[in-house]
Structure formats: structure tokens, C-alpha cells
């Protein structure tokens, strides 16, 4: 079965100006995203992982134009979303929905669940008004709530239930792509598992495509087909799930994976502890952005920026941005702690 492109992001940049100086001129930029390209195919789940400040949430927001991207294109089923008017964009919002980390903050506390869902459907003109109530009750059942809860207010629900409301709202307009921005991060693990299972069931049932943004690699391994690893506004590695976890190539990906505590006291671990903190995105390092913390960094890394590429050791579709990934993998280069 040929994979159909749903979303194609090319050279996406997001620079946030820093105002300052005497007259509030723009003195510098936070380079939150600096040339990010990837493709999402229909029906798959792609995750973006990385630590705070890597640009993963900015990517989601830029795709939806919640913040206008500085540069680059976002093609959704062939239409460049960055070129169309705000009004046309509103129509596309029907196909592209987002679920946030804290649904409480994104749901009007003075609206009942029914009116939240009704409003979403009204804006996108999804169903004739007289059929909406039935649809709302159906949606609530789909996400594991009870139809009689439709007339309750958000504060009457627990965190997990509110996240279900957020999902119901996204579903109410029959979207094609749902961006889940840390959608399960705030939930306790027993509830998180419920929501993750729900998302998987919905994907199967409605053929949804997910862009899953998360810092939790456990969640990401569970839900994704392909994974993008970001560091300081750039993609450092992109691969299918198995390749990424079993055969990571970029030193940052390796360090990230090794840093996660394993819930198994017998697990043997070779831990790579990175030095220092993530540098500021205002003034990112030259060359490879990871060189300041990389145990393999050479002079070349400090000056020359590595591009995403593949090697003989990697499966098709697996790419990483490191000058030395072959040498590191076959042991020619040793870490220098």
C-alpha cells in the first residue's frame, strides 16, 4: 500500500523577536525553530521528542499557525497553509485539531461540555443544529464519558476526564490530523494509560493521523510509528520506532535514551551523562548545535553544521544529523568525557 502524504513541512523557521533597547527595537531573536522539515503520512503516528526549548511545541503551533511561522512551508494535502488567508485557514482547522497538555486551560470554564462541543461543531458547520445533541452524546460515549455528563461544567471533571473532553472536542469536527501537544503528560500513569488506549482505538476506528508531541519516551515508544528527535530548534534524528530505540545513531538520541530511568532494577545500563545545560536558543552554538555537550565533538563539529543523512548502518527512512555517526557506531571514535 502506497503511503499518502498528509502533511509536509519544509524549512520551517520560527524566530521570536526579543524587544529591548531604548525604543523597544528588536534586538535579537529566539530561534525556536530553525529549518525543520518532515512529512507525515495518512494514518500514522509521528512523534516529536526533545527537552524543553527544543522547539517541539513550537512546531505544532506553527503548523496550525497559532503563531505565524517566520519562514518555510506547511503543505496539508497539497495546500500550503502558510500562504492562505486567515479565513481560509479557519476552514482547514476542521481537518487539523490540537489537544493541549492542560485541557482545563483551553476549555471555557463557564461553558458546559455540550456547549463546548456544540460551539466547535457550529464554527465548522459540521452538522445541522438539530442533530448535534445526539452527536454530542455519541462523542462522549466514544471517549468513555457518559451522555448525561454533557450538561456538566469542566470543573466537575477530573484531569483525565477533562482530557477526554478535549479529545471529544477535537473529534467533533471529524479531523484528519490531531496534534497532541503533551496531551497525556499531566496525567497519572493509570489514567494516562486509559487515554493512550483511547487515542489508539480512535485512530483505528476513524483512520486518524497523529502528530504526538511529548518529552516522555515511554509514551512515545508506545504510541508512535515514526519518531523525530529535536534539539535546539533542529531535527537531529528521524526514524521508525524500532530503529530509533534499537539503533539510535545521533549521540544526543543515545544520551537521551540512556538518561531515562528504567523501571527494572536489574536492567544493565550504560549511562551517558551529558555535561551542562542546553544552550540558549537566542545564540545557538555554531556548527552542530549539540557540540557543547557532545562527548565526541571535534573541531569540525564546532564549525560545520551536519545535515540529516543516512548511512549503511541505518534502515531506509532513518536519518541523523551527525558528522561521525558511522565512526561512533563502529567504535572508531571513543567518547571523551
Amino acid at each position: 500500500m502506497a503511503k499518502k502524504e498528509l502533511l509536509k513541512v519544509e524549512g520551517l523557521k520560527q524566530y521570536f523577536p526579543i524587544k529591548g533597547g531604548f525604543l523597544g527595537r528588536t534586538v535579537n531573536h529566539v530561534k525556536a525553530l530553525d529549518g525543520v522539515s518532515f512529512t507525515i503520512y495518512e494514518g500514522e503516528t509521528v512523534s516529536i521528542v526533545g527537552e524543553s526549548g527544543c522547539g517541539k511545541s513550537t512546531t505544532g503551533r506553527a503548523i496550525l499557525r497559532l503563531e505565524e511561522p517566520t519562514e518555510g512551508t506547511v503543505e496539508f494535502q497539497g495546500t500550503d497553509l502558510t500562504k492562505i488567508s486567515k479565513k481560509e485557514m479557519r476552514k482547514f482547522r476542521k481537518d487539523l485539531q490540537i489537544i493541549f497538555q492542560d485541557p482545563y486551560a483551553s476549555i471555557n470554564p463557564r461553558q458546559t461540555v455540550a456547549s463546548v462541543l456544540n460551539e466547535a461543531m457550529h464554527i465548522q458547520n459540521v452538522l445541522p443544529p438539530n442533530q448535534r445533541r445526539a452527536r454530542i452524546e455519541e462523542l462522549l460515549e466514544t471517549v468513555g464519558l457518559r451522555p448525561y455528563q454533557a450538561d456538566r461544567y469542566p470543573h466537575e471533571f477530573s484531569g483525565g476526564q477533562r482530557q477526554r473532553i478535549g479529545i471529544a472536542r477535537a473529534l467533533s469536527v471529524d479531523p484528519k490530523l490531531i496534534i497532541c501537544d503533551e496531551a497525556v503528560s499531566a496525567l497519572d500513569v493509570s489514567i494516562q494509560a486509559q487515554v493512550l488506549n483511547l487515542l489508539e482505538e480512535l485512530q483505528e476506528e476513524y483512520g486518524l493521523t497523529y502528530l504526538f508531541i511529548s518529552h516522555d519516551l515511554g509514551v512515545v515508544r508506545h504510541i508512535s510509528d515514526r519518531i523525530i528527535v529535536m534539539y535546539l530548534g533542529k531535527i537531529v534524528e528521524i526514524a521508525d520506532k524500532t530503529s530509533l530505540f534499537e539503533n539510535p545513531q545521533h549521540p544526543y538520541t543515545k544520551a537521551l535514551l540512556s538518561a531515562i530511568p528504567v523501571p527494572d532494577p536489574d536492567a544493565k545500563k550504560e549511562r551517558i551523562i551529558l555535561k551542562g545545560d542546553v544552550p540558549s536558543p537566542i545564540d545557538p552554538p555554531n556548527g552542530c548545535r549539540f557540540h557543547t555537550r557532545c562527548p565526541f565533538a571535534t573541531d569540525k563539529c564546532r564549525t560545520e553544521e551536519p545535515q540529516l543523512r543516512t548511512s549503511d548502518l541505518m534502515k531506509e527512512g532513518h536519518q541523523a544529523a551527525c558528522h561521525y555517526m558511522e565512526d561512533i557506531t563502529n567504535g572508531k571514535m571513543q567518547p571523551n568525557y
Binding site: V189, S190, Q192, A193, Q194, L196, D216, L217, G218, V219, V220, R221, H222, I223, F245, L257, I260, V262, P263, D264, A267
Partner: peptide, 8 residues
Amino acid sequence: LNSLPRHD
């Protein structure tokens, strides 16, 4: 333990 998504 059953609901914990694992990365390993």
C-alpha cells in the same frame, strides 16, 4: 506496572 508505557 501494567499501565506504564516503557521505553526499553
